[in-house]
């Protein structure tokens, strides 16, 4: 402990410049989807005299906290509408993008072997396709022997950004899903069982013969779960890889209110269809301007220095043009009549 303090003191002394001599402590709360990458950025940003405390309590809670100003910034996977932003005096900007991938447990079917379309996936989760050897699945998978086994769909029991991204995709590709269920952090599932967290979904799929679930990509990779190929908008079957995620991200249109680009079901032959950005919320009328500036400094640092870390954790960093757009958006926040960014 003592050594740690000394080390910390040394660090502070080392990095100290007259203007930034003190370490800024910032507290954020919200989305669980980007949690790992924020944690890593927080570790790195200590060198820039910013100490981050980020708690992944869920997007909804993150929005509540920043509305009530109990934290310095909120984080959410589901973007707020322009009206919500105005009402809450909030500025919204994206940080990174991530992918959601379906996982399966079908005896005799290898990882990335099964091919699915969005419509079939939606009908599985709607309870309309109940057997793995359903003609509609067999039709997509010539050469794969599919067992006569009941499909056991697994979803996130806890309301989560991952569910929001996944159901947004299902709603985008299936008219009937859009009209009967819709997209949300939790929805009215027609069939299957829920499990808590990525670990819960993966565990339940692993336990259940015929199980299918969806998890964040990093989780599937780290645990070598059996993922599937999905047919994208261009009609191509793609595997979940960093290349297909990046291909999807490269087509995004960020020039929308709240910078809430939708990357779900993007054009492009090589695009993975379930990719989504995650967002930060900042008060436009900050009560503690120093904290708000520190949050900006933190994400400025992260944009500049954090891309490699993000890739390492299988997130997709923002293109530089978008980063610069975010920086100029920060300038809209005014403190004592002065733009809060760039910080003097």
């Amino acid at each position: 402990m003592i050594t740690r303090r000394i080390a910390l003191a040394g660090l502070v002394a080392l990095a100290a410049t007259p203007a930034l001599a003190q370490t800024a402590q910032i507290t954020g709360a919200g989305a669980s989807f980007p949690n790992p990458v924020y944690q890593r950025w927080g570790e790195g940003a200590k060198a820039a005299n910013i100490q981050l405390n980020y708690q992944s309590v869920g997007s909804g809670a993150g929005v509540n906290q920043i509305r009530n100003r109990t934290v310095d910034f909120g984080a959410t996977d589901a973007p707020l509408t322009q009206q919500q932003l105005t009402e809450g005096n909030l500025l919204q900007f994206p940080t990174v993008m991530g992918a959601v991938v379906p996982i399966v447990n079908i005896p005799g079917v290898a990882a990335d072997q099964l091919r699915l379309t969005g419509e079939v996936l939606a009908d599985i989760y709607a309870g309309k396709i109940t057997k793995w050897n359903d003609p509609r699945i067999v039709e997509l998978n010539s050469g794969v022997t599919l067992p006569n086994l009941a499909i056991a769909p697994v979803y996130r029991a806890d309301a989560s950004g991952t569910s929001f991204v996944f159901t947004s995709y299902l709603a985008a590709v299936s008219e009937s899903w859009k009209s009967s269920v819709g997209a949300g952090t939790s929805v009215k599932w027609a069939t299957g069982a829920g499990a808590r967290g990525n670990e819960g979904v993966a565990g339940t799929v692993r336990n259940t013969r015929g199980g299918i679930g969806y998890v964040e990509n990093a989780y599937a990779t780290q645990n070598r779960l059996a993922t599937v190929q999905l047919r994208n908008k261009a009609g191509q079957y793609v595997k979940p890889t960093m290349e297909t995620f990046a291909a999807a991200a490269s087509n995004a249109n960020w020039n929308v209110p709240g910078m809430a680009a939708s990357i779900i079901d993007q054009q492009g032959a090589n695009s993975w269809p379930i990719v989504s950005p995650t967002f930060i919320l900042l008060p436009t009328n900050p009560t503690d301007a120093a904290k708000t500036r520190a949050v900006m400094r933190f994400f400025d640092w992260a944009y500049t220095n954090g891309a490699a870390t993000a890739r390492e954790l299988e997130y997709i960093p923002l293109p530089e043009t978008v980063q610069n757009a975010v920086r100029s958006a920060w300038g809209q926040i005014r403190v004592d009549g002065q733009p809060a960014w760039p910080a003097r």
Partner: peptide, 9 residues
């Protein structure tokens, strides 16, 4: 609670 649901070994 938060670590158990995380993707990292």
């Amino acid at each position: 609670y938060s670590y158990a649901g995380s993707p990292y070994e």
